[in-house]
Simulated assay, not measured.
Amino acid sequence: MENLISAKNVTVIRDRQTILDDVSVDVGARDFLTIIGPNGAGKSMLLKCLMGFYAPDKGHVTTRPGLRVGYVPQRLVADPTIPITVRRFLTLRKKVKQQELDRVIAETAIEPSLNKPLAVLSGGELQRVLLARALLNDPELLVLDEPAQNLDITGQLAFYKLLETVYRERNISVLMVSHDLHLVMSSTRNVLCLFHEVCCIGEPRTVTRDPEFISLFGPDMAQLMASYQHHDHHAHSHGHSHDHSHADACRHPEPSPQTTGEEQTDIPSAKTESSSHA
Score class of each variant (00 low, 15 high):
273 E>T: 02
18 T>G: 05
238 H>F: 10
271 K>T: 10
154 T>I: 03
186 S>N: 06
232 D>W: 14
84 I>E: 11
261 G>E: 02
187 S>H: 10
124 G>A: 00
48 K>M: 00
160 Y>F: 06
37 G>L: 01
28 G>A: 11
143 V>W: 03
22 D>L: 09
178 S>Q: 04
23 V>L: 09
236 H>S: 15
55 A>Y: 11
3 N>T: 02
266 D>T: 05
5 I>F: 13
79 D>A: 05
225 M>H: 07
127 Q>E: 07
110 I>R: 00
141 L>E: 13
248 D>N: 10
182 H>S: 12
267 I>S: 02
33 L>W: 14
278 A>V: 14
227 S>V: 00
248 D>V: 06
210 D>C: 07
78 A>K: 12
150 N>W: 08
24 S>P: 11
206 T>W: 02
219 P>D: 15
257 P>W: 10
162 L>I: 12
107 E>H: 12
74 Q>H: 13
71 Y>K: 00
154 T>K: 14
151 L>C: 05
183 L>F: 01
59 G>L: 02
95 K>R: 15
180 D>N: 12
80 P>N: 14
36 I>M: 12
220 D>K: 15
113 S>W: 09
199 C>L: 04
251 R>H: 06
222 A>W: 04
144 L>S: 03
222 A>R: 03
255 P>A: 06
108 T>E: 02
231 H>S: 11
152 D>P: 07
158 A>G: 13
239 G>H: 02
212 E>C: 09
181 L>D: 01
193 C>T: 07
259 T>W: 14
99 Q>R: 15
15 D>E: 06
